Structures are given as structure tokens and as C-alpha cells.
Simulated scan of single mutants.
Amino acid sequence: MKTSQIAALAATVFIVSACTSTPKVNVRQPGDRNLSCAEIQSEFDSLDNVQNEAEDNQGVNTANVAAVLFFWPAAVGNYMDADRAMDLVEERRAVLMDLYEAKSCDA
């Protein structure tokens, strides 16, 4: 009895760990208008990191393979979560680009 409970617990932990979570960005953030050109550029760099993580979470990785093998809806959820994160990154990038241009940062 104990062995089967331990095995069930281990399987549950494995399945739950198969889900990935990509950080989400807020499209508009308090203080955006006060950002300097250098800070806006730093925000662009941070967005690149989030975008890369989201792309990694959409591709073939350990979590997604485990999700497909043991609980395929988790793989779909991982993909959709990463897709939403990438959409938010693009929206945030557009907001920052508007600020960048309004402040004539490339001048």
C-alpha cells in the first residue's frame, strides 16, 4: 500500500512539474513616461529575454515532452501560455517604441 501511494505521489509531482510558466509583462506600467532613453533600451533588452523564454517554452523541452507523454492538455496549455506572453511582449514593445520616438531617443 505504501509503495503505491509513494508511486502515485511521485507521478503527480512529475506531471505537475511538466507545466511551464512564462513571465508575463504589463503592457503599460506606472512611470513609463518618466523613463529615460537608456531605461527604455534596457526595457527592450528585458523584453528580448522574456521573448526568448517564451519561445523556449513553446518548443520541444523536457516539460513539454513529459506533458505530451503523461497529460497532453498540459502541453497545449504550455504552448498557449507562451503564445500569450509573446503577444504581451509585442504590445509592450509597441508602447515603448512610441515613448522612444516621442522622446527623440534615436536623435
Rank of each mutant, 00 (worst) to 15 (best):
E39Q: 15
W72N: 09
N49R: 11
D106L: 06
R93Q: 13
K24G: 00
N34Y: 05
E91D: 15
N64K: 02
A74G: 00
R84K: 10
R92H: 05
G59P: 01
Q41F: 00
C37N: 10
F14E: 15
L99Q: 11
D98E: 14
S4K: 09
I6C: 03
E91A: 14
V50N: 06
A63V: 02
M97P: 00
V89S: 11
E91M: 12
V25C: 07
T3M: 06
D106W: 08
I15V: 15
D32C: 01
E53Q: 15
D81R: 12
A102H: 04
R33Q: 13
F71M: 04
V60N: 14
C37M: 08
I40Y: 03
V50S: 12
L9H: 11
K103P: 13
D32T: 03
A10C: 06
A75D: 13
W72R: 10
R33A: 14
D83T: 14
L88N: 07
V25I: 14
V68I: 06
E90P: 00
F44E: 07
P23K: 01
K2Y: 13
L35E: 06
V27I: 15
S36P: 06
D87F: 12
D32N: 09
V68T: 09
I40Q: 10
L69R: 09
Q29R: 10
A8Q: 09
A63M: 08
V16I: 15
E53G: 15
V60D: 14
S104M: 03
L47Y: 03
V89W: 11
K103N: 08
A74F: 03
